[in-house]
Write a protein that binds this DNA or RNA. Sequence first.
RNA 1: GCCGGUGUGGCGGAAUGGUAGACGCAGGGGAUUCAAAAUCCCCCGAUGGUGACAUCGUGCCGGUUCGAGUCCGGCCACCGGUACCA
Length: 851
Amino acid sequence: MTPYAPSEIEAKWQAAWDKAETFKATRSDDKPKYYVLEMFPYPSGRIHIGHVRNYTMGDVIARYKLATGHNVLHPMGFDAFGMPAENAAMQTGIHPKDYTYQNIDDMVAQMKPLGLGIDWSRMFATCDPEYYGQQQSLFIDMLDAGMIDRKNATVNWDPVDMTVLANEQVIDGKGWRSGAEVERKDLTQWFFKISDYADELLEALDSLDNWPAKVKLMQANWIGKSRGLQFAFSLVKGIGAHNSVEVYTTRPDTLMGASFVGISPDHPLAKELEQNNADLAAFNAKCRKGGTTAEALEKAEKMGFDTGLCVHHPFDTLWELPIYVANFVMMDYGTGAIFGCPAHDQRDFDFAKKYGLPIIPTFLPSEDSEAELTEAFVPTKTDMVHWVAPFAWSPNTNGTDAINKAIDFCEANGVGMGVTKFRLRDWGLSRQRYWGAPIPVVHCNSCGVVPEKKENLPIELPYDVSFEIPGNPLDRHPTWRNTLCPACGKAALRETDTMDTFVDSSWYFARFTAPHTKTPTEAADAAYWMNVDQYIGGVEHAILHLLYSRFFARAMHKTSHLPESAIEPFNALFTQGMVTHAIFKTETTDGRPIYHYPEEVDLRDGGGFLKDGTQVAIIPSAKMSKSKNNVVDPVAIINQYGADTARWFVLSDSPPERDVEWTASGAEATFKHLSRVHRIACDIVENTDAANQQDEPLLRDMHKAIFEVTQGVESFGFNASIAKLYGFTNTIAKSKAGGDAKRIAIKILAQLMSPITPHLAEDIWNMLGEKKLIANAPWPIAIETMMIEDTITLPIQINGKRRSEITVPKEMSKEDVEKVALTDEAVIKALEGGQPKKLIVVPGRIINVVI
RNA sequence: GCCGGUGUGGCGGAAUGGUAGACGCAGGGGAUUCAAAAUCCCCCGAUGGUGACAUCGUGCCGGUUCGAGUCCGGCCACCGGUACCA
């Protein structure tokens, strides 16, 4: 018997697949197509065990679909632009391009030994000029189609380094390098007009039947459609050109509870007032400090500044409300002005308390509720409440009805209009950075902003740049900016902003259908391969990447680069969990943490110990992080146990949508199991026992295994499939069946394992004398009649607690089951001669005797 | 802050509203061996009991139901996203 030697068999079968071009995708009409895609990686240089899990899931699907008669497309590429390459350039002096391509080479070298069934001939990186040149072409088409805009955007500004900062580079409101307090600054930027598609992107979510409900919900909330009232408060005393303040509210029904008007520090009125009011100017400047993230803005201390101005309440001209500039009012949502209703909004309530403003309830939980509030009363809009200040509806009405009535009433009385607004903002794509796709436009003194001619694409990044000074090296490049205007031919300057890396990842899936063609896509290939039938990736992309991709597919359809059938590019989505690992920590005498590598720690007696006997603290299931020394290197695992062990383990222990914790003992156990399967297969090849009555239970479990493993693969229950594979392996090992039956069983086991552990499966298949590849063998089919057992065991509950069980023929009628149940010893004892109050028999499930 | 998710033995987890803990890890016992490795077999939620068994037990509090890990309401903790990380 030859021992299980993964390093030999894995290399052997990978070579066989390469030679046979098993995974090369070619258009053909004789089989249904299936496109499976995992979210492509950023080329960090090292593959992570999380990548192994992500790609193994996709590979299981790809290989299973191949076995079930599909023409499979399973490609791989790299999301290669972005900040880490520039950071590396700043830290080590290596050029972003060299850094990135070296990392890609390294990662491919680490991925190939995993034995993934990928069509490597389609590989590309988003930093290939061949790719981003087509992206520039798409940009020009979208500009022509009116889908792109130029307008102001707020960015994080580092006043010391004089540079724009990414949110990630703002730490506690300070620049990561300079440590200076970050300010918000307006810049003119390019925008994709995704908000034009807000309603459509929202409505179409309903059609995505095979997307997780949570992702659809998150996208719906992000788009944030709301109906409200937009109206003007007239100023008691006008100032400059301002006679009124336009506000938008989703709760017009609470208008009688208004106690102040809040305007954004960036509101035109606030900007006008600050001209002649140094205190307000200082207040506004203070509000503009800090980062641009929603979190920073929301968590900032609520501050207000009384402008001294007042407005009339729309229903009572004698009622005057003060205007405050308030830092929690956002200029880019609604109109940049609100009315505050402290009784029914906690933020307004806190504001009113702080500045001594009245708190006027418009409704209460019920008629006899206390009208003095200690916190804002904010029921859900469907709750019935008792109104004390309604203006067009009955005293007991829910929020939704009251809002609709309020809008109708206001419209009828000439106070504003009901309007629908979206939270979704346009997508700002300009980045003041080098390592991205240049935005293909030219700034001409006579013609203004002009798109580059398509024949001049790609606009390639210059190689000779330096990163010693903060800021965008394209800005200070001596010659790259200089060009000729595509319209008038005179000297002009190139745009130096590059595109957001989300643009790169918003259409790569379409490019995979024809990765080397001279247009963004090839119509016939796109029509054949789109959509992605199964997309797999992390839930962290639930909103931005997936929403942008949905928008881009629509844009590419509008510009004739995708068929209409591809406007929702991902038919099914699966969001997988992370691979985590324990952190082993000790502390220095002054309390600073020291993190230890797993190989330094000996696990015994329920604890972890260093070589010198020091006990370490174990923090379980932590996200892998280089700084915590808890990263598992897949290359080391493959060298030690082989790719099949790594593939099996990452799928075995947790459901795919949840995190899985990598443990050394778990990996070792997997290796032992695969060795066992190999050993059992070797034994069976030599087994010549005659057929006997033990064949039947073995074959019955085999059909159950086919059924359960298939169901697991079809429903992303890979851990359930693996649990059954363990069980079936045990059945085979213990079975006394004849040689022929055992050979059939082990052959089926190999097939069922083949998507997960393809190398071992090929080897067993070969051992059994098969001449073709298992990768091309048709998937086995479970025969239902072969799975049926004759009897069934039913638990008996007494008052809902399990007390006994009976075994009855499978087909026994409900009445007969009741009779048998009443003869059960435990039931007789519990009844004490009486009759049960109720007897519940759920056929095939359970019996409950209520006494 | 806001949006979404998760919470079950020593650990990872299983369970169409129907026997809580499948399968795996760790641990304990045994077989084999001169011994070890490897392999094979058995046990393994807590408490009480020699035992059959009894009571408790799925983050916390409450509810619906013959029956709740699962459904509903209210909390707590952790994780993801929060528009310039990818």
